[in-house]
Design a protein around this nucleic acid. Structure first.
Lengths: 338, 338
DNA sequence: CTGTTAGCGCGTTCAA
DNA sequence: TTGAACGCGCTAACAG
């Protein structure tokens, strides 16, 4: 079996130099029309396509952005909100003719993955960037944008004002008269956006204070941002007490709560209120009519990618970007009865 | 600002050759323990990490598999079944220490994307590989696995036996006495797995024949594999006739149908039956209790990736791989009433 | 203006 | 343990 056809082969067959062949593909204006045509004709005959890796190597560009996944790929791809973020990133990548590379931990090591990633920039989501990873990023001079990460004086971040958004969320609940409230927070381990949970808890405390309540007034429980753990958390809470409202930090969890209530003959909204967070757009979820705090995942993705391209470009970009959020009224949060 | 630290810098500072430095990282056994330690120490001091692209270039490997997306990334990432396929691919990639690169069309051109993809192999899903793309793949000697593609004497494929699976699906419906049947098929345009639709239609005809019916007995309508178009298709069909059962080619569509029925005060299963196809596992869908034909998307992804790695390895692999499927009983397909 | 030469980018790997 | 070739295309500098 013959080796791949290279630029050299074309140059020889066409009777020109390698440079001429390169120009024929990249900058036809630099050679005569005649030469360009002859070279492209020969290239077509011999089935020559410039090797993309060699090309990228000499240009010093990868033509790909990386999306760094803290968890196993299988887990990350189950979260609808993560998916919306990915769509946003993907959209901007497409505009720039870039690919989007998903980077899972290599041998369970994120830093190993970051060492080997062949991308021009990285976007991380809900990931604590520790010192080791930081060092690697610095050594590789790799631009990074962190979505929903801790505020930081070195790493660019895109997020909403989680504290204020959470305060708004709880305020809606308190305004409707709810006082027996169960909060389902996010887990605090290193692979989850623990900081988010903390920022939001501060917002809850703020809202509680406004109503003259202390944080002891609410039951708090942690659960990963999935439908299943939402159900489990609701079941656990209901076995011990009977709140009038569930406040969750993700729609996936809220949907789990709604279904858990349903399985017990309780209607979300009418019997017990539920409020979510994220504003998942997926059509099939709309049936639930979830009341929630909306943050646009696609926009987060798009802004992050935009910032990354600017950084790759060498532009200066503000360190922190805040995205708007809002309350979306649904059918699962209603005035407390009796 | 200094340039990136290179292998050369380390070699000089450590007083060894580039080769020695390379060995220190990749094959420490080839040099003395002493040399290895010294070199690694210097490397750490200077903050040296072998450049992954240069490394891949000289090794002739990309350490990434590509997932070729026929549609805009935003669309592809909305389909739950596509997501499950991606998860399967991702899992195998992780085992091999590979990244997974999503490849959208460049400037709306798939062939352009295939030309430039920096990956060791490609997986396509529901994509017709035309002659132009074929040529590029051949020129680049790029291994490919097509999921749900047409059977082909050149391109490896992974799929279920769609004809038989569809026959099974319709048989279930016919056995329960349904005779006024509406089929919602998949669109036949080039970006969709048109061939699937055709293969399955053959299966339907087969099942109909077994019951002494001709294909005129069913209403047929095409709709893309999304929740929204499922609703629309159901609405359109119901405005003209009143079938006793909807047979769909995807669960997303079936869920749309179920909700459209609900919005008209009809209960799926009790009033009108609905059967899906795919067997989406997403927890939040389970509430629907959809009767459906299950095909394991993750397994499709895993098998495809496995085959691709074997091909990259130079192994011989059978051209066609069939995955099992089965009927899953739910609450939306019931015996036809009086 | 057209086309060529030569060197670069950075690690890997074989022969010595 | 190392020198030197290699992979492949790009591009600055230069000659006709």
């Amino acid at each position: 079996m013959r080796k791949r056809t290279t630029i050299q082969d074309i140059a020889e067959k066409a009777g020109y130099s390698k440079a001429a062949v390169s120009f024929a593909f990249n900058d036809p204006a630099k050679i005569s029309k005649e030469a360009g045509e002859r070279i492209r004709k020969v290239a077509k005959e011999l089935g020559y396509i410039p090797d993309p890796m060699a090309r990228n190597f000499s240009r010093g560009r990868h033509m790909a952005l990386g999306f760094l996944l803290p968890q196993m790929l299988q887990e990350s791809l189950r979260n609808p909100y993560t998916q919306s973020v990915m769509r946003g990133i993907g959209e901007v990548c497409q505009e720039h003719g870039y690919m989007l590379t998903l980077i899972p931990p290599i041998h369970a090591s994120i830093s190993e993955a970051v060492k080997n990633a062949t991308v021009d920039g990285l976007i991380t989501y809900g990931l604590t960037i520790d010192g080791k990873i930081r060092d690697i990023l610095r050594m590789r001079r790799m631009p990074v944008v962190s979505i929903d990460g801790e505020s930081d004086d070195e790493i660019h971040s895109v997020a909403i004002d989680d504290e204020e958004a959470a305060a708004l969320q709880l305020r809606k609940v308190l305004e409707l008269g709810h006082r027996r409230i169960a909060v389902i927070s996010l887990p605090g381990d290193a692979y989850e956006p623990s900081c988010i949970a903390r920022r939001r808890m501060k917002g809850y405390e703020k809202a509680l204070a406004e109503f003259g309540l202390s944080s002891d007034a609410v039951i708090i429980r942690e659960a990963p941002a999935t439908y299943r753990s939402g159900r489990e958390a609701a079941a656990a809470i209901l076995s011990e007490s009977m709140p009038t409202c569930f406040v969750t930090m993700s729609d996936a969890v809220a949907l789990g709560v709604v279904d858990e209530l349903k399985s017990r003959g309780l209607r979300a909204g009418d019997d017990i209120s539920v409020i979510g967070f994220d504003g998942i757009e997926d059509d099939s979820f709309q049936g639930a009519g979830l009341s929630t705090i909306v943050q646009n995942g696609e926009e987060k993705g798009m802004r992050s990618a935009g910032i990354l391209f600017a950084m790759i470009d060498g532009s200066d970009v503000p360190l922190t970007t805040l995205i708007p959020y809002s309350y979306r009224e649904g059918r699962t949060l209603k005035e407390m009865k009796g």
